[in-house]
Each structure stands twice: as C-alpha cells, then as structure tokens.
Amino acid sequence: MSAGFYFGVEVFLNGLMSGVMYSLVALGFVLIFKASGVFNYAQGVMALFAALTLVGVQSGQVPFAHLINAVFGTNVQHFGWEVPTFFALLIALAVMVLFAVLVEKFVLKHLVNQEPIILFMATIGLAYFMEGFGDLMWGAEIKKLDVGIPQGGNLWIEESTAFLGGDGFYGFYLDTLDIYATVIAAILVTSLVLFSKYTKTGRALRAVADDHQAALSVGISLRAIWVIVWAIAGFVALVAGIMWGSKSGVQFSLSLIALKALPVLILGGFTSIPGAIVGGLIIGVGEKMFEFLIGAPFLGGATENWFAYMLALMFLVFRPQGLFGEKIIERV
C-alpha cells in the first residue's frame, strides 16, 4: 500500500473525529427542537458562553470587570484566587441551568403559539444578546481553556500503526483531544438515551416531543419540561464548549460552530439524536475527504466552508426530512 493511501485513511479518521465534534453541537439543537419545536440558533453562542464562564470562574476573573472599571473608574481584574476545575465545572453548569430558567421565564413563556420563524428569530436575538453579554462579563480577548485533557498527537496510535506502511509512513496521526471527545460524546449520547428511556422525567420529555397537547392533558408541565430541556442543552453546550475551547481557544469564533452544526442537523433530521451523530460523521468525513481529494488539488482549497451545506442539500433533495427525520405528512 502506498503512503498516499494511508494518508487518505488518516484524513478519513480525522474526518470521523471532527464529525464527532460537530455532532456534539448538533445534539443540543436536536434536544431543544424535539421538546419545544424551537430551532435554537443560540446553541453555538451557548457553547461560547459556557466556555467563557468556565474559564472566567476557573481563573478567578471578576465578572463585568471592564464595565465596572469604565463606570466607576476602578481597576479590578481578578479576585486573586483560582477555582479547581471540578468546582468551576459545577459553577458553569449552574450558570447554564440559571440561563435555562431565565430563557423560559422571559422569552419562551411569552412566545407560546407563535409561528416557528418568529421563535427562530427570537433565538437569533438571544444569540446576539448572549454574545454581547458574554463579552461584557468576561472580556473579548482570546482565552486558553485547560481542564486537564491531554492534547497533541497520540503517540501510542502512531507507534502501533507504523508497521502498516513502508518507507515514509510513521503511523496515523490522531489528536488525543479528539479521541477524548469521541469517548465523551459516546458517553453523553448513551446517558441521554438511557435518561430518556428509563427515568420519569425522560418519559415526560418524550411525551412532550410526541404531542404538546396530549402531554399537557395528562398533567405534564410544559414549562418545567422546557426548563429541563434547555438546561440539558446548556450542559451539552458546556461539553461542546470545553472540547472546542481546549482545541482552539475560547473566543468569538467559537459561536460560529453553530453554522457547522446546521448542515449536520438537516442531514440527520431535526428530530433524531442518532441522526445528529450519523449526520455529523458523514459531514465530517465528507468535507475532509472532499478537501483532500478534490478541493485542495483542483479548487484552491477552503471548500470546507460550503461543502457540508452542498452535501446536505444533495441528501435533502432525495429525502426532504433528512436521513432519520420523521416522515413529513401534509394534509390540506
């Protein structure tokens, strides 16, 4: 086998890994869409906000330091302590739960029965709000996030696959962080599935996803469910924020991962958790392979920006509800 072939395999594997990262974000979208029918554009910004909060708490930053300094003329920056990662995680999670409660109280409650596009626009407004709020609270500079996940190439995989090739092949290069992300995503999905299958709340979640009115009529509180769902989505956003944040630093561009997750979403179907995973893998592999085989040699590169959308579009023309979405039945 030639080195080029092995390089292709490596691109394939890396595509799978980045696909997992996309799925992590898409998962949050699916959870909220299933339970409340809201297409939550703010999911990416939620990941950014969660990561910002985590870094801020961890390093003992004073919230709103810039604002306080600007208004009162003081110069406060840090509390002067560092919070252990585990407690910082808990605090960040608590903030995301609080966020879920506030969103339900101030936004969703008032928008019941509105058209989907109005709800969608409201989440874009929410995304703007959170973006500005996060920057005001923690500052806009790029921050380094370290929660103790090792990074860099995985030597063990590299060494144990080196025998495959001949000259000029030193084994597959895989980032350890990506491997961790894959494992964590697998745990996350399994626990979400178990949660929705075997707990009382999970059953209520599925009931709401099935039919809002029927769920209401058997005594399930829609508002409580929405808070729970947004809190879970906040938790997923935190996980995604940690993974993406440790990979490329916590900064504004983190919120743009929402745009990476959208094609995953329409490919897999808005309402399917397995769809989010499979869609993520297809998109991840597809765009890496396309860039490797066609994009970089023939089209001048940087095709990753749009290829995912085109791929999803192709799939949609044949299956308008996505790969795993519910069949769309329309009646007059």
């Binding site: 936004v107 058209e115 703007y128 500005g132 709020f133």
Partner: peptide
C-alpha cells in the same frame, strides 16, 4: 464617553434584547 469596545458589546446586548422584546410585544 465609554470605550468603543464596551459600547460595541453593549450594542449587541441591546440590539439582541430589543429584538426579543419586539418579537414578544408585537410579532
């Protein structure tokens, strides 16, 4: 007389908040 970067962040907060309020009050 605020610094432009803080004002820019505030603009995001206000515009975003206003859009949400707007949609709630008059969709």
């Amino acid at each position: 007389g605020w610094a432009t970067n803080i004002a820019a962040h505030f603009e995001f907060v206000i515009v975003g908040g206003l859009i949400v309020i707007f949609l709630i009050m008059e969709p």
